[in-house]
Structure formats: structure tokens, C-alpha cells
Nucleic acid binder design. Structure first.
Length: 677
RNA sequence: GCCGGUUUAGCUCAGCUGGUAGAGCAACCGCCUUGUAAGCGGUAGGUCGGGGGUUCGAAUCCCUCAACCGGCACCA
């Protein structure tokens, strides 16, 4: 006999080997009907599974959040059956659940297109309506191999071979159709429901390896209810509206063109935003770091020394004199990183232990030949500006430096309203330089720091390990932030490097007069300023906080009688440090309001005869219909205060709390609450 | 780089089975002096992504290159 413990704490005895279905049917017909699977000691399991040991048991109904992954997984199976029914000869491979849905990879000579979706979806609905039970069989490896080989399912044969010895080879049937699968599944296909949709087709390498053949992947989404599906589709539309490429065009921030794939043409407004970000970062590092500037192109020998030429040559740009008769035909590489340049600066002149830690920062422009398919607006470009720095320090100083960087990164993110951060430690990759002893040591230090980061945050910062994801020269921390609509972006990074200083022969003179090699830490907060700008555009949906808005104030006249006053208002706003323009065009005020609202100008000052006579302004804020009439001087003072960047608020004017509405404090830093679209 | 798709006016898009291009908005010119998300009328604007081919004839069919989009792979 075994003892099962139910969610309400009740315990009951059953013969060993009883199935979940038998248990639930013994409790209540209605419960059995609702149940699609069970959880044994918290683990999702087929309802028909025989229960061998004492366990906590819970019956999972279809609307249980845990059932969602089953719905999606089952849906993937149904997709595969539908595809094989409609397109005989198609081989199935794998079909896992992913965030918001699932996919299934197929092998077929003719790829699928979205035009195939209606037919496939119809077939899927048919299979779901048939409501065949999912039933599991455990096969021997030989049988599985043989059956799939005979069916011409060569990828499945490979999958069978990949199952570790000692693990069952499980086959799930849904009627006549079956698939090799780890499970679990719901009780029948009918439980999937109708809240699913095929989303897109894409190529994907077999087993995620570019050396393998390419399969056709069909992505789908599936939800417990139509309402959930609709909500998800709405969300996608919302995300599309915030696409920085679209907003970049609509707000006239930047553009790309054919002659410069992956390099940005920043327009005046976009460049204002960009420079505002750079200025912010400059202020944040002032005092601690020294800013430098290293050359854009350097002899390739330097990159050979650093190791980049060996490791990343395929992804580097090289330049040479263009003249056929030039006497110097050496190859120069456009810098893909700033570190070798900074090591040269460190090496110039003798350094003492008293100089350490030495922190060299650079807003360096780097170029990397990214694969053509990788480019994506500002988020992945071939030329970008890093808010980069290299810290030369002793081993004893290393942990403190990492923690100091951590403070800078977290407080910076907080200033932009990012407060959900995950710090990941990436450990040694297969392809690397340096001894194992060195890696052991470096990872040791980093692990210790990671724990300290977590402890200091009071549990607010989550941490994780990314095995094998480190840089070739050392382990690294990656800072992942979550934006206003829940998407994660890896931005900041701290990388410990025991290699480069040694490769370049950098040293300092220690207490005892001996030469010692410093440890180098690479660090970036925004990472790529271009990318960070893109993330901010999407995060704020173009509705920037006043200090970042490229154009902060638009003065709009209602009639030409207010023109002189409008010029005066704009001039005064400009003198108050605000970025302002005046719209004196002969247009209706509704027209102007619409146009500047679409351009996402945060503040409209509307001026008519009345305002000119009374020396007031009528203020309208982006995203609100509210009109607020106030004296000119008062309005300008209000806006001037609000436009103070978050880092300066505390230092310059402690009494200034900026926007009265929606601000919160995190670790003592001002946070601009997420702006809604 | 790989798979699939797309590329027509500044922007968003139409153009069926091949018969030398069309709308809305924007721009420009007038009229309207206007009170918080589109006043009215007119004018101009395109080597249909580049190159090659098939054809009496190509935006339309084929080849090729490029850029972009969605994924995959990559991301020092």
C-alpha cells in the first residue's frame, strides 16, 4: 500500500501501482472530468501513470496555470500530426514548449509558408475535435529504432539514440498517430481547446548546430482561453507599436540605408538623445574614472598580440591605404574593442602599485563585422559606441572593484526605471586562453562576488550561472534588465581578464620593487550606447522622461496675434535650458496638437490672445487631454526642474523632487516610473 | 552566414492571369486667424531596389546581386 497526501492535507491509502485516474475517479466524477493531469510531489505527470510510492498528489485542471505548458505541448503534437496528414513524407523532429507557445521542427524538401497555415489549423481543430486520448507506451530501443527507421523518420532514430541508457523510450499515441516524447500529456487532444494560432515559419538548424541541415520550424501560440489568446495578440501589437525602428522613423531620430548596412545615421533629434545619454554616463563616472581616447585603427599586429585576430578575424574590419602606389600597405584593423588601446595607455610610463586601481574609460566607437542576418535596427549594428572602461588593479582589489561596478550599474538602471535585474555569471568556455588554474581562481573570486551582490541587494537582485558562456579570456558577469513590457535585455557586463595584461607585457611596480602583472577588468554599463538608446525608445514607447526627450517643449500659437509672445516664451524656455521650438504656422490648434502629439513632444505650450494678454501659458502634457493654465515664469521653473537629469537631482537641488506624480525611490536613486504607451 | 519572405512617390499601401503606374497622408501654392488629436481648394512628385535575361512588349515571368523583415546560428 502507498499513502497519498492531498492538497487539503488529507492522507489516504491505495494499493501500490494505482493510477491517478483511478484515484480521482474514486473521489468524484466531476473532479475526474475536470482533471487533465496530476502533480506528484509537485511534478507534472500523466494522469494514467501508475503511482509507485508515497507522494503528495494534486489534480491539475485545465485552467490551472501549470496546465498551460501541457496545452502547448499537446498542441505541438497535434500540429505535427496535422502536418504529416496534409504533407505526407514530412519528417518530424522535436516540438518543445517555449515562452508564450511552442514550435515544431519538420524536415521537408519544400518549406512551409504562412499560406499553409489555414489548412493546417483546420486539420488541427479536426484532430482536437476527435478528442482521442493520449496514451503512453514504453518501447525497447530496438523497437523504437526499427519503427522509426521503417517510417523513414531518420531524425527520430537519432533522437532515440540520444536518450541516455536507463531512461525509458516513451511513445505517446493520440489515436493512430504517435510520437517519441518525454511527456507528460493531458488526458486527450480535446483538452487543448481552440485558443491557439500558428504564428510564423522559420528555418532552424537540426539540434541548433549550424553544421547540421536546416529544418522548417512552425511557431504557434496556445492559451487556456480565447481571451488569453486575444490578450497575447494585443500585446504583440503593442510591442510592434514601440518598435524602435518604427519610432525612430516616426520621431525622426535616425535612419539606415543600403550603403551602410548596420551603421546608424543619427538625425538631430536622435543625436540629442544619444548625447544626453553619453553626458549622463560621463557624469556618473566622473571622479572615479579617467576618460581617454584610443585610436580607431591600429596595426593588425596589435590584434594578433591581443588574440582577437585569431579568435574574431572573421568578424573584424580591416583597412589599408587605398592608393595602389602607397609605400605602406600594412593592414590595420578597425578596433572591435577598446581594451588593447587602453593597455597601451597603461603601459605608457611606469606604473606603481600606488596608481592602482587605475580606471580608464572611453566612449569608444568599435566596428564589428556582424553576420548579415544578425543585424537588427539599433539593437545589433556593425558600428557602435561602448560606454567602456578597463580597470587595472591588484588581485586583492578585484572583488571590491567588481562590487563598485555593480553599484554603478544598478544605480544607473534604476535611473531609467529598470528595477528587475538579473546578474549572471558566465564561466569558462570550451574555446579559451589561459591555464585551468587561472580559470579556477578567477571563477572562485567571481562566485564570491556574485553571492555578495545577491546578499547586498537583500534578495532583490536575482543571480544565475551561465556555464561555458564566458569570454575567451576570462569569466564575466552579465547584467540583464527587464523593460516596461517585460522583455529582458542583456546590457551591462563585468569581465575579469588575467590574460591580456600579460600578453601585452603590462606591469606595475609593487611594494617590494618587483614587477607584477595587474588584473584587468573590462566593464560596460549600457554596453552599446546605440543599443541602449534603442532599448530606451522601446521601454518608454517614445514617451521619454523630460530630461531625455530630444525636443522637450513645443510652443504653439492659436492665432498670429500671439506670435511675438510665442517667440518670447520660446526664447525664455531656451535660456532656462530647455530644448524648445515654436510652431507659428498658420494652422488650426487641433492640427498642431495632433502633429506634435504624434511626434511625442512631452510638453505643448499653447498660446492665444488670452495668454499673450495675461502672460500665461496653457500647458498640455503628452498622453493627457488636460489643459493647465499658469503664469509663464512658473511654468518655466516647473519644467526646468523636471528636466534635471535624475543623477543631478540629488546633488544639485535636494529639495527638488521633480515630477510630483509617479516617482519612487530605489536604493536612494530616483526612478522614473515606466511610461505607458 | 543559413531558411523563408519583402522591396512601387518622403510615409502607409493598391496595381487580377505581362499591354510603358494609382490612392491617402506628407510636401509646395492659395484661401481660412483658427482655443487643444486631421479646415478647404489646387500643384508637383516615381529609371516600380540594382544588374542581366525571356518577350513585339516586364512593376508583373526567369536569373543574379543588395538591403530590409521573421527566425536559426553567431554576439570578443
Amino acid at each position: 500500500m502507498i499513502t497519498l497526501t492531498f492538497p487539503d492535507g488529507a492522507k489516504r491509502q491505495y494499493p501500490a501501482g494505482t493510477t491517478g485516474r483511478a484515484v480521482v475517479e474514486g473521489i468524484a466524477k466531476s473532479l475526474a472530468k475536470r482533471t487533465v493531469a496530476m502533480a506528484l510531489d509537485g511534478k507534472l505527470t500523466d494522469l494514467d501513470e501508475a503511482i509507485a510510492h508515497d507522494a503528495q498528489i494534486e489534480f491539475i485542471s485545465r485552467d490551472d496555470p501549470r496546465a498551460l505548458e501541457l496545452i502547448r505541448h499537446d498542441c505541438a503534437h497535434v500540429l505535427a500530426e496535422a502536418v504529416q496528414t496534409l504533407f505526407p513524407g514530412t519528417q518530424v523532429t522535436i516540438g518543445p514548449v517555449i515562452e508564450n507557445g511552442f514550435y515544431y521542427d519538420f524536415a521537408r524538401n519544400e518549406p512551409f509558408t504562412p499560406e499553409d497555415f489555414p489548412a493546417i489549423e483546420a486539420k488541427m481543430r479536426e484532430i482536437i475535435a476527435r478528442d482521442k486520448p493520449f496514451t503512453k507506451e514504453v518501447w525497447s530501443r530496438e523497437k523504437a529504432r526499427q519503427v522509426f527507421r521503417e517510417k523513414g523518420e531518420h531524425f527520430k532514430v537519432e533522437l532515440v539514440d540520444a536518450i541516455p541508457e536507463g531512461e525509458d523510450v516513451k511513445i505517446y499515441f493520440q489515436g493512430d498517430w504517435f510520437d517519441l516524447c518525454r511527456g507528460p500529456h493531458m488526458t486527450s487532444t480535446g483538452k487543448i481547446g481552440n485558443a491557439f494560432k500558428l504564428m510564423k515559419v522559420a528555418g532552424a538548424y537540426w539540434r541548433g548546430d549550424a553544421r547540421n541541415p536546416m529544418l522548417t520550424r512552425i511557431y504557434g501560440t496556445a492559451w487556456a482561453s480565447e481571451a488569453d489568446l486575444d490578450r497575447y495578440l494585443k500585446q504583440l501589437e503593442e510591442a510592434e507599436k514601440r518598435d524602435h525602428r518604427r519610432l525612430g522613423r516616426e520621431m525622426d531620430l535616425f535612419h539606415f540605408q543600403e550603403e551602410g548596412p548596420g551603421v546608424v545615421f543619427w538625425h538631430p533629434k536622435g543625436w540629442t538623445l544619444f548625447q544626453e545619454l553619453v553626458s549622463y554616463m560621463r557624469r556618473r563616472i566622473r571622479g572615479d574614472y579617467q576618460e581617454v581616447n584610443a585610436p580607431q585603427i591600429l596595426d593588425k599586429s596589435l590584434w594578433e598580440t591581443s588574440g582577437h585576430w585569431d579568435w574574431y578575424r572573421e568578424n573584424m574590419f580591416a583597412a589599408q591605404s587605398a592608393g595602389d602606389e602607397a609605400e605602406d600597405k600594412r593592414w590595420f584593423a578597425l578596433k572591435p574593442m577598446n581594451c588593447p588601446g587602453h593597455v597601451q595607455i597603461f603601459k605608457h610610463g611606469l606604473k606603481s602599485y600606488r596608481d592602482l586601481p587605475l580606471r580608464l574609460a572611453e566612449f569608444g566607437i568599435v566596428h564589428r563585422y556582424e553576420p548579415s542576418g544578425a543585424m537588427h535596427g539599433l539593437l545589433r549594428v556593425r558600428g557602435f559606441t561602448q560606454d567602456d572602461a578597463h580597470i587595472f588593479c591588484t588581485e586583492e582589489q578585484l572583488a571590491d572593484e567588481c562590487l563598485k561596478i555593480n553599484d554603478l550599474i544598478l544605480s544607473t538602471y534604476a535611473d531609467f526605471g529598470f528595477d528587475e535585474i538579473v546578474v549572471k555569471l558566465s564561466t569558462r568556455p570550451e574555446k579559451r586562453v589561459g591555464t585551468d588554474a587561472m580559470w579556477d581562481h578567477a571563477e572562485d573570486v567571481m562566485m564570491h562576488v556574485l553571492k555578495e551582490i545577491e546578499a547586498r541587494s537583500g534578495g532583490r537582485i536575482k543571480t544565475a550561472i551561465n556555464p561555458g558562456e564566458g569570454a575567451f579570456y576570462g569569466p564575466k558577469f552579465e547584467y540583464v534588465l527587464r523593460d516596461a513590457i517585460g522583455r529582458d535585455w542583456q546590457c551591462g557586463t563585468t569581465q575579469v581578464d588575467f590574460n591580456l595584461p600579460e600578453r601585452f607585457g603590462a606591469f606595475y611596480i609593487d611594494h617590494d620593487g618587483a614587477k607584477k602583472t595587474p588584473v584587468m577588468v573590462h566593464r560596460a554599463i549600457c554596453g552599446s550606447m546605440e543599443r541602449f538608446a534603442g532599448i530606451l525608445i522601446e521601454h518608454y514607447a517614445g514617451h521619454f522622461p523630460l530630461w531625455l526627450a530630444p525636443l522637450q517643449v513645443m510652443v504653439c500659437t492659436i492665432t498670429s496675434d500671439a506670435d511675438d509672445y510665442a517667440r518670447e516664451v520660446a526664447a525664455k524656455a531656451g535660456r532656462a535650458g530647455l530644448r524648445v521650438e515654436a510652431d507659428l504656422r498658420n494652422e488650426k490648434i487641433t492640427y498642431k496638437v495632433r502633429e506634435h502629439s504624434l511626434a511625442k513632444v512631452p510638453v505643448l505650450l499653447v498660446l492665444g490672445k488670452r495668454e499673450a494678454a495675461e502672460r500665461t501659458v496653457n500647458m498640455r502634457r503628452l498622453g493627457s487631454q488636460e489643459q493647465r493654465s499658469l503664469p509663464l515664469t512658473e511654468a518655466l521653473e516647473l519644467l526646468r526642474r523636471e528636466a534635471v537629469p535624475p543623477d543631478l537631482r540629488k546633488t544639485i537641488d535636494p529639495s527638488n523632487h521633480g515630477e510630483p506624480e509617479r516617482h519612487l525611490t530605489l536604493d536612494g536613486h530616483h526612478v522614473v516610473a515606466s511610461t505607458v504607451a
